[in-house]
Simulated assay, not measured.
Amino acid sequence: MDNVWFITGSSRGLGRSLTSAVLAAGQRVAATARRPEQLANLVAQYGDRILPLALDVTDKAQINKAVADALAHFSRLDVVVNNAGFGITGAAEGYTDEQVRSQLETNLYAPIAVTRAVLPHLRQQRSGHILQISSAGGRVGNPGVSIYQAAKFGIGGFSEALAQEVAPLGIRVTCVEPGGFRTDWAGESMTFAPEVPGYETTVGPRVAMFQNGTFEPMGDPDKAAQVLLALVENPEPPLHLLLGSEAVAIVEHVENARRAELEKWRPVSVSTDRDGIPNFLDTELGKAYLQRR
């Protein structure tokens, strides 16, 4: 299918791999980046099938302009990929206010803003697929990346609710949740919070892993790009898609532990209901909730 893609953070990492794969497949892309000149070789190769656009995803005016320019050039958008993002490692209390703000603005507020900007057009089309590039860290918490993961957990919740809102409009939503991939996320793009004493055995190992270069990601971004190309053609795409055996193993382990905790504490959890009322799942509201899921 000749889809038109809108990809943020398209000049590096997974965004670059996906932009290249989309073009190689004969499709078209509005490729946004802080430095769109980094896409010059793709423009030389693919001509007007790629539209490079300057975009700082934390700037709402730039978001609206990029979406408008993409629509003016291609007349439609079929796949929107919120890929731009970066990480900062450190203890939760060690982050500066600016570091916290930058993580939430780029990794949470920005994809919400881009999504809101494109939704009126997808709604009018009655079609479209939004790919939120989240992380396995959007389902599993790890020491040292608490603020990054707060953003990723947030985008997961936003996307689950959004998917239910827009499904009758023909719009699909998928949270893509990679494990470690061979990009510069943990390399040149990674920065660090000021060190705080007392976290040497929790945050310390993760800081050391990223700083000394011992972190060896298993994921291949070019393979991930091919998966995403196929995904948007699937008539029943998943709401959540983990990428990488690392992500699958970690999330499976944690979800098993959460299930065990739920069962252990179930009597306490249900003990707070008012007396004389039925179980929630036996109510009309509960049944309707399960049908929506």
Rank of each mutant, 00 (worst) to 15 (best):
Leu239Arg: 03
Phe192Ala: 10
Met218Val: 14
Leu241Thr: 08
Thr202Glu: 15
Leu239Pro: 00
Pro194Asp: 13
Glu195Gly: 08
Phe215Leu: 12
Leu243Cys: 03
Thr183Gly: 01
Arg206Asp: 05
Pro235Gly: 07
Met218His: 15
Pro237Leu: 03
Lys223Ile: 05
Phe181Cys: 02
Asn234Leu: 04
Ala186Tyr: 08
Leu228Glu: 00
Phe192Val: 05
Val207Arg: 12
Val196His: 08
Val232Ser: 01
Leu242Pro: 00
Thr214Asn: 14
Tyr199Phe: 14
Pro235Asp: 11
Met209Pro: 01
Trp185Pro: 03
Ala225Pro: 01
Leu228Ala: 02
Ala193Arg: 01
Ala193Cys: 15
Gly180Gln: 03
Gly187Leu: 13
Phe181Gln: 00
Glu216Asn: 15
Asn212His: 05
Ala224Phe: 03
Gly213Ser: 07
Val203Gly: 00
Gly204Glu: 10
Trp185Val: 12
Glu233Trp: 11
Ala193Lys: 04
Leu242Cys: 03
Glu200Leu: 11
Val232Arg: 00
Pro205Asp: 07
Thr183Leu: 00
Pro221Glu: 09
Val227Ala: 10
Leu239His: 08
Ala230Gln: 13
His240Arg: 11
Met190Asp: 05
Lys223Gly: 09
Val196Gln: 11
Phe192Met: 12
Leu231Met: 07
Leu229Met: 07
Thr202His: 06
Ser189Leu: 13
Pro194Val: 09
Gln226His: 12
Gly204Trp: 11
Asn234Val: 06
Thr214Pro: 03
Glu233Pro: 07
His240Thr: 09
Ala208Thr: 13
Glu200Arg: 14
Pro194Ser: 07
Thr202Ser: 15
Thr191Lys: 12
Phe192Asp: 04
Ala208His: 03
Val203Glu: 02
Phe192Lys: 10
Gly213Gln: 06
Ala224His: 09
Glu200Met: 09
Gly204Gln: 07
Thr191Ala: 10
Glu216Asp: 14
Thr214Asp: 15
Asp222Met: 08
Phe210Gly: 04
Ala208Asp: 06
Lys223Phe: 11
Leu242Tyr: 00
Glu216Cys: 13
Met190Arg: 15
Gly198Tyr: 06
Val232His: 02
Lys223Met: 10
Ser189Pro: 06
Thr183Gln: 03
Gln211Lys: 15
Glu233Met: 13
Met209Gln: 12
Thr202Gly: 06
Asp184Arg: 13
Ala224Cys: 10
Val196Ala: 08
Val232Thr: 09
Glu233His: 15
Leu242Asp: 01
Asp222Tyr: 03
Leu242Phe: 02
Ala193Leu: 06
Gly180Glu: 01
Gln226Trp: 12
Pro217Ile: 04
Phe210Trp: 05
Pro205Val: 02
Leu243Pro: 00
Leu239Ala: 09
Thr191Glu: 06
Leu241Phe: 02
Asp184Asn: 15
Ala230Phe: 06
Pro217Glu: 00
Tyr199Asp: 07
Leu241Pro: 01
Gly187Asn: 14
Gly198Thr: 11
Met190His: 14
Thr214Trp: 00
Met209Gly: 03
Gly244Asp: 01
Thr201Lys: 09
Val196Ser: 01
Leu241Glu: 02
Phe192Asn: 04
Met218Ile: 08
Trp185Tyr: 15
